[in-house]
Simulated assay, not measured.
Amino acid sequence: MQTEQLWLKNAQFFDEIDRMLQDGHSVTIRAKGSSMFPFIRNERDSVILQDSKDIAVGSIVLARLQNRSYVLHRVYRLEKEAIVLMGDGNLYATERCCRNEVVGVAVKIIRDGRYVDCTSRKELFKAWVWRKLLPVRRVLLFIGRRWWI
């Protein structure tokens, strides 16, 4: 069976995701890039997104940044006027966005046919530990990328 493909520009693709989430649907997207390694792996994992009403430190969110690009990163810090995001695979780089620029929140990761609940205590604890390991993350990422990729 042949699968049809539809090619869209990123802006069209993410605008449609935004619209579907606002309409109450959940959306599944394939992960691209390594900024969320080791929790989400490029081209292997998919992420199920839902609307963005519940945002907390540790949540994985899809956000539209000021330059109209989109990122799927973890909420690193909540500030009065902004949300600070950081990819799990990043060492220093953060992004800032407003709450209304968060398009959706990841609720599950699909990995090798299994569903991983991003909101479970276990996953949030692993994310908390990973955040605390930020000072040694460079070494851990080097080892992890050589071992798992």
Rank of each mutant, 00 (worst) to 15 (best):
I143N: 02
N100K: 08
L65T: 06
L78S: 10
L141T: 01
L85K: 14
R111L: 05
I110H: 02
I143M: 08
I40N: 06
P135K: 15
G113D: 00
N90M: 03
S35F: 06
C118S: 07
I60L: 10
R44W: 07
F37N: 07
L134I: 06
E16N: 15
Q12R: 11
V107F: 10
K32I: 12
V129W: 04
R19I: 01
F39G: 03
L62C: 14
N100R: 10
R99W: 06
L124T: 03
E43M: 10
W7R: 08
Y76H: 15
K80A: 13
W130E: 09
V84Q: 02
D18S: 09
R41A: 09
K132L: 15
L141P: 01
F13L: 09
W130Q: 13
D51L: 03
D117G: 03
I40M: 12
R131T: 15
R74F: 11
I48M: 06
L141D: 01
D18I: 01
R111M: 04
S52M: 11
Q22E: 11
R111G: 04
A93R: 11
I110K: 05
D88C: 01
S35Q: 08
T94R: 13
E43P: 03
F142L: 00
V107Y: 07
A82G: 10
M20W: 03
E16I: 00
L124Q: 03
L141C: 05
M86I: 07
V75P: 12
I83T: 06
V27S: 01
R41K: 08
H73M: 04
